[in-house]
Design a protein around this nucleic acid. Structure first.
Lengths: 288, 288
DNA sequence: CTCCCTGATACCCCCAGGGTATGACAGCGC
DNA sequence: GCGCTGTCATACCCTGGGGGTATCAGGGAG
């Protein structure tokens, strides 16, 4: 009748390892058990998932299809579970994720007025986990900065805001009224290249596409610390830049840098009146 | 570890019936078994899902949350299963749902050229099942006519097309160069009111909101048969209207009727290169 | 030809999911 | 107040399936 999620999880392990022994080890079960579970799954679906030749294991087309579907399925099961556990705590709570520098007060106020019985929680996110908190059920909605992986999410645009370059106070460009991206071509960018798509182009043009290693800096404070130390520069949305101020770092407008798109996102598979209401309010209140 | 989908299904039955006995009957299992399974689910999640007073069963907040998440979860499990079974058939097939009257040839051509190894199947849908085929895994993408329930789907607009009124050839308005919605206020509309949102307004204005019973007509042929018989009128997108022609039914443009929005939709939780590629091509080729 | 690597098979144990019979308790009718 | 009824929980049994270990079977490498 229903597929067994345990078997699906086992399947994913085998599909990823392409090796029953290693997969079994990873799952902390014995190899024969795993062989039998996979065979049981194949029997249930009446479909062959792997071609086992002696000496090699590989996926069939059906297996590829299942692998494609399995991960989101397991993820949404896990997210549902987390949401249920969370819901048990309060009469009803509603968690809003937000990136630092974004002001959600107005939307929260209006939403509270409309849902007096609801406990509203705020969850500060970073660029890395702004989407993750939705998938794992930690937040009901999240105010995100593009670009994000929109996979499995419903995303509604709220507003755009300009981005600025953060430079050490003693940098040669510090104090200029405005600069262009190409002025920064030789600088080391202290963030994931996806966060600043424009960078890829100038970087590959000017440096032959040799990407410099990107340090993993997960929050603004750390980035600014490195900027101040002269290890590189950072591109930030204006509101974030003006939220974190320190004397040894200055911000400079960049003429030809596209704006940062701020959106509201939530899990696409959920229909909840609260989520819908919040979306309506946020779009009305925050949309520029 | 993973939630058991069987238990979740059982939970949904109890949550819907709010009665263990009836739910058990619906599930074709004995009532004590169901009681025990629900309790096991509660223990697993370490959360109370129902408040059982003698004489009544109702949901806790956690239960409400689970009910909200459970149905999409079960649906996506079922859809994944169907897709896997389908994938077992061919080396790789890609199924495109479409509403009658929509020409997909151009997009399919371009897509075939890009994916020579892929077998492309076309699945004709109706207004009722255009979304269903996505949720149950019968199609990978579907070309839909709004309004639809966008729950769980990613929807990209393709183009708009005008809609016309289909009238019996001997109707008093037949042959007019164009009419307005209000001219049709007294007519019986032979389709689901959601399909023609403008209707609700004039219907409630002019007839005190008493909705006439809507016959369940699932395809265009049946609708036109009834139109010809004088049982009512129908609103159709222009391309559909010109696709089905018969001498005893005529089409008349309606000035103040909004256009029909044609979109491409697919399941939001899926990331597949094929789906993404088709979306890019369809938007490029079909977008007006 | 032999050895090793890898998945499959055989067999055991035990728990969980199915069943039936019955209990406990609230509300209602008389 | 007593008994009836409706409803969920408890007690107990049986079977199947998921976990384990020991071992087999077959292909490649040397």
């Amino acid at each position: 009748m229903d597929v067994d999620l345990r078997k699906v999880r086992y399947f994913v392990a085998v599909a990823e390892e392409l090796h029953f022994g290693r997969a079994a080890e990873r799952l902390h079960i014995a190899q024969p058990v795993l062989s039998r579970q996979i065979r049981a799954l194949e029997d249930e679906l009446k479909v062959q998932l792997f071609v086992r030749t002696k000496r090699a294991t590989e996926l069939t087309w059906a297996g590829r299809q299942l692998l494609e579907d399995a991960r989101p399925l397991l993820a949404s099961a896990e997210a549902a579970r987390r949401r249920v556990v969370r819901a048990a705590r309060g009469p009803k709570t509603f968690t809003i994720g937000f990136m630092p520098g974004i002001t959600v007060t107005a939307a929260v106020r209006a939403f509270t007025a409309q849902h007096p019985g609801l406990t509203i929680e705020l969850l500060r996110t970073t660029w890395d986990d702004q989407v993750e908190v939705l998938h794992d059920g930690r937040a009901d909605v999240s105010i995100v900065r593009l670009p994000i992986d929109q996979q499995g999410l419903t995303v509604r645009p709220l507003f755009d805001e300009p981005r600025v370059a953060m430079l050490p106070a003693d940098h040669r460009l510090a104090g200029k009224p405005s600069i262009e991206i190409s002025d920064l071509a030789d600088e080391h960018l202290l963030q994931h290249p996806d966060a600043v798509p424009e960078w890829r182009d100038i970087a590959s043009e000017l440096r032959d596409g040799r990407p410099r290693p990107v340090p993993t800096l997960h929050n603004v404070e750390e980035k600014l610390e490195h900027v101040a130390a002269g290890n590189g520069i950072s591109i930030l949305p204006l509101s974030t830049a003006s939220f974190y101020t320190r004397p040894d770092v200055v911000s400079v407008p960049v003429d030809d840098l596209g704006p940062n798109h701020v959106c509201l996102a939530w899990t696409a598979t959920r229909r909840s009146k609260a989520v819908q209401d919040f979306a309506d309010i946020a779009i009305r209140v925050l949309k520029s």
